[in-house]
């Protein structure tokens, strides 16, 4: 699949995500838009997965640690064939298996339950360590938010990944520079991330996380150490009025905003 195809798929996922947020009247649209290009590259190019065998032992693992953008994962999984695309319309509805945070016991393709922040990376370290112990060839990917890196458990995991020599682990930090309440820099500014990860013994690559031709090679990079991709992204990417505004962490577009957003995303397709 070529970068142009991936960009087209990413736009389709953005459009479905936007529609679902409006239909459900809730969601975390800003962080979904920032992460969708990376999710698309993972599921349509990089990950070795079999949607009809979601528990295949040799499948690559992906953990969405920033579980609040579950909708973006659901839309991506549905488009990749893990669940019916029509089911997206049940998002947040009573008894839907698609609640606000992903549930691995109900949704095929979800590896572990996330929602509370700082959980995905330790679990991903365990997955990668298991592959080292069993000789399995799968690769483990995990995506965190940049604000999420304020959770101390992540740094416990980062340290142990280096200690265990987990060169089969890739961490993607979705560095959209905003957390729920404010900008990262005005809250607890961990940026710049690269020297911190390097100090813990990781390889680090900085990319534009909304540019497919930078995302794919970074995800496919292999080395001798655990790999962190610091993905510089835009919160709300693809929808002009949402970009880089803290308000759009979990706001829902009104009718006029929805019309504009639909037009922008549709035009791009």
């Amino acid at each position: 699949m070529q970068p142009n195809d991936l960009e087209r798929i990413a736009r389709q996922i953005r459009l479905r995500d936007l529609q679902a947020v409006v239909e459900a009247g809730a969601g975390h649209i800003g962080g979904e838009m920032s992460a969708i290009d990376i999710l698309t590259a993972l599921y349509f190019r990089v990950l070795r997965v079999w949607p009809d065998q979601p528990k295949h032992p040799e499948r690559d693992r992906f953990v969405l640690s920033k579980g609040h953008v579950a909708l973006a994962l659901y839309v991506t999984l549905a488009k990749r064939g893990f669940l019916p695309e029509a089911e997206i319309s049940t998002f947040l509805k009573p008894h839907s298996r698609l609640n606000g945070h992903p549930n691995c016991t109900k949704v095929p393709g979800v590896e572990t339950n996330t929602g509370p922040l700082g959980h995905g990376l330790p679990v991903a370290v365990g997955m990668a360590k298991a592959a080292k112990l069993t000789g399995a060839s799968y690769h483990t990917y995990v995506m965190t938010g940049d604000g999420e890196m304020q959770e101390g458990s992540n740094w416990e995991a980062i340290s142990s990944a280096a200690q265990f020599g987990l060169n089969n682990l890739t961490l993607v930090i979705d560095h959209n520079r905003f957390q729920q309440g404010a900008a990262l820099k005005d809250t607890n500014n961990l940026a710049p991330f690269p020297p911190k990860l390097a100090a813990f013994g990781w390889d680090v690559t900085e990319i534009n996380g909304n540019a497919m031709d930078e995302i794919v090679p970074a995800l496919e990079k292999r080395g001798a150490r655990p790999h962190c991709i610091v993905a510089h992204t835009n919160k709300g990417h693809g929808i002009s009025f949402m970009q880089d505004t803290v308000d759009w962490h979990h706001k829902v577009p009104n009718a006029e905003q929805y019309r504009i957003a639909l037009a922008e995303l549709s035009e791009a397709i």
């Binding site: 693992r61 590896e111 572990t112 700082g118 959980h119 990376l121 330790p122 679990v123 991903a124 370290v125 365990g126 997955m127 990668a128 360590k129 298991a130 592959a131 112990l133 069993t134 399995a136 483990t140 101390g152 458990s153 416990e156 995991a157 142990s160």
Partner: peptide, 13 residues
């Protein structure tokens, strides 16, 4: 915290 998360990941593997 990492210990318990790692345990979950090992089981997943």
């Amino acid at each position: 915290q990492n210990m318990v998360g790692v345990g979950a990941g090992l089981a997943n593997g």
